[in-house]
Simulated scan of single mutants.
Amino acid sequence: MKSYVSEMGVGDLFFQQMMNTDPAALIRYRNDEFKTLFPGTDPVYDEERIAYVARVYGLTTSEARRREQQSLELCTGSWDSFGSFQEWIDCGDAIHWGLSKPLLLERRDKATKACSFSEKQTFNDQDRATFDKTRLPLAWDLPFVRRHNDCVRGVMVGGP
């Protein structure tokens, strides 16, 4: 049980409290009380995620972190403050790609046509099913995901 709790990224404090609490004295956490037992982020997952972001955008991990922080600062507020969810996504993507919004939209349209299975699907049905069955971050390394990301990156940085 201890190794499972550790693998899930939950601190030892939670394990100790779970094992040392009498079943008749169960604790019900309210509001933010549980945050003392659980980390806000999983550092291992965060490292894997930022490495993936860096690979997708063709950046070093330090540059990916810098651009992610910049997008958090500049694309602030809820998505509805941008007028639409897509505008909020565009704000972060423009920063990550290092492009103006008009150039981002132009190249994204080219990448969608050049790199996707169809206009409405990134992957074919079989690849999509494989992706959906594969847990993250392992799904990021599937060969067809890497091919797609390589194609998109080529277009976004000025390729065909």
Results as ranks from 00 to 15, higher is better:
residue 61 T to R: 11
residue 16 Q to T: 14
residue 29 Y to Q: 10
residue 105 L to V: 12
residue 117 F to A: 07
residue 151 C to Q: 03
residue 55 R to K: 14
residue 2 K to R: 13
residue 46 D to F: 00
residue 108 R to G: 08
residue 143 P to F: 01
residue 62 S to G: 10
residue 44 V to S: 04
residue 133 K to W: 04
residue 59 L to A: 06
residue 100 S to V: 06
residue 53 V to T: 14
residue 128 R to K: 12
residue 147 R to C: 00
residue 39 P to Q: 07
residue 109 D to A: 15
residue 32 D to R: 10
residue 81 S to C: 05
residue 67 R to C: 08
residue 126 Q to K: 14
residue 30 R to H: 15
residue 63 E to Q: 13
residue 150 D to G: 11
residue 6 S to I: 02
residue 65 R to A: 14
residue 57 Y to E: 09
residue 95 I to M: 10
residue 113 K to R: 12
residue 155 V to Y: 00
residue 65 R to M: 10
residue 16 Q to I: 13
residue 152 V to C: 00
residue 33 E to Y: 08
residue 61 T to M: 07
residue 140 W to V: 01
residue 68 E to G: 11
residue 46 D to M: 07
residue 128 R to V: 00
residue 125 D to H: 08
residue 56 V to M: 13
residue 128 R to Y: 08
residue 77 G to T: 07
residue 51 A to K: 08
residue 147 R to W: 04
residue 118 S to M: 06
residue 72 L to Y: 03
residue 125 D to Y: 13
residue 75 C to H: 02
residue 18 M to K: 04
residue 107 R to N: 07
residue 50 I to F: 09
residue 31 N to K: 15
residue 126 Q to F: 13
residue 91 C to P: 03
residue 53 V to G: 01
residue 33 E to K: 07
residue 66 R to W: 05
residue 110 K to M: 12
residue 32 D to S: 12
residue 121 Q to M: 15
residue 104 L to Y: 10
residue 43 P to F: 02
residue 45 Y to W: 08
residue 52 Y to R: 14
residue 126 Q to R: 11
residue 122 T to N: 10
residue 81 S to L: 09
residue 70 Q to H: 06
residue 146 R to Y: 03
residue 64 A to P: 02
residue 50 I to R: 11
residue 96 H to M: 15
residue 116 S to V: 00
residue 34 F to K: 02
residue 82 F to W: 08
residue 59 L to H: 08
residue 92 G to R: 12
residue 157 V to Q: 13
residue 141 D to W: 06
residue 67 R to E: 15
residue 114 A to P: 01
residue 54 A to W: 06
residue 86 Q to S: 10
residue 51 A to G: 15
residue 88 W to Q: 03
residue 54 A to Y: 06
residue 127 D to E: 15
residue 97 W to L: 05
residue 75 C to L: 05
residue 54 A to M: 05
residue 118 S to V: 01
residue 13 L to A: 14
residue 149 N to L: 08
residue 4 Y to T: 09
residue 73 E to P: 10
residue 148 H to G: 00
residue 155 V to M: 01
residue 29 Y to L: 12
residue 31 N to Y: 13
residue 121 Q to W: 01
residue 45 Y to V: 00
residue 159 G to C: 00
residue 16 Q to C: 02
residue 133 K to L: 14
residue 160 P to A: 12
residue 146 R to I: 14
residue 50 I to Q: 07
residue 144 F to P: 02
residue 68 E to H: 11
residue 99 L to M: 08
residue 135 R to E: 15
residue 15 F to A: 06
residue 70 Q to T: 14
residue 48 E to L: 12
residue 42 D to C: 11
residue 71 S to A: 15
residue 89 I to S: 05
residue 5 V to S: 01
residue 5 V to Q: 10
residue 12 D to E: 15
